[in-house]
Amino acid sequence: MLNKALFKKDLRLSAVMLLVLSIIFVVQYPLRTILELDRMRGAGTGPLDMGGVQLQAMFGGGAAAMPAFIGTVILGGMLIGLERNTRRHDFSLSLPYSRQTLFLIKATIGWGAITILFSVNVWLAYAIIWSSEYSSLLANFNFWGMFVSPLVAYLAIFSFTLFMGSISGEMISQVVLSFIFMIFPYGFVVLLGFFMTTHNITMEFLGTIPEDFLAFFINLMLPYQVMGIDITTNQGLLTLITLIFTFVCLFLGTKLYEKGKSERNGEFLLFSSLRPVFFVGIIGCFALLGGMIFSTFGGVQGGAVIPYWLGALIFGGLSYMITKRLLQMNITMKNH
């Protein structure tokens, strides 16, 4: 199943991004740890002065995890989308391997690289602290929250990007759709919330939803899992759900990769049946976004309705024109 030739081919294809991702993880963990330890030494902070806050600064995600998040998505994009943009995909399909094998090799490369790079750098950072005068800080090290959960989240981000690659026809749409859909549930709730607030629509049952559940819901967003570690959440359950999501993405991705038509490479979407869904969805969401932005010009409650709809119409109209073109585009690099 796992073929040496395909490994060579895809490793070569993703080598630059793997190097970038290696640098990102080195900066994010060992380098950040060294700098934080230096800062603490300079400030004369003792190991027990601030509880686990310093450790959180070294192993927590925050904005420092943003490059790794973006890098992981781009890695997935390079392995599938970029191949579709060029003639490499045709070459791959002509080889004596099944499409399932082609997809799983890409997944294995990403999974392997992320697991190795993340683990090595996290434990390197751990070792740096352990060997320093601040080793007692490690008593606050949360194995699930600081190692397992973000690792699984990175794997899920990569797997989800591969899944998006199995329905999108090229790299840009794969990457953009991956970013959008990773925050979609939360983003859509926010947009819908603005719509209801602006129109004075209240839904009593929303108040009955436990706050813990809402916090858990936000934690389920993959970017949040790598950028905003909340160690109060049930990490075990969160990791289990993320892991199941990861395998579902891989399973569906494999099936759709087998069914994707190579003649649609370069198009925004590979499956024409998805076009109406995306067409309505993109325009609807942009209209809600436009409404949300323009409603800030409103003022008192109720007075924001007209600006809201003006914004919705402008954004909706613009997105209608852009989406129409987007769904007809074909980005394929010709090598003449």
Binding site: R87, D90, F91, S94, L95, P96, Y97, S98, R99, T101, N335
Partner: peptide
């Protein structure tokens, strides 16, 4: 797909 072991497509 293994049956393509004996076929080579020369295009791009």
């Amino acid at each position: 797909p293994g049956s393509k072991q004996s076929v080579i497509y020369v295009s791009d």
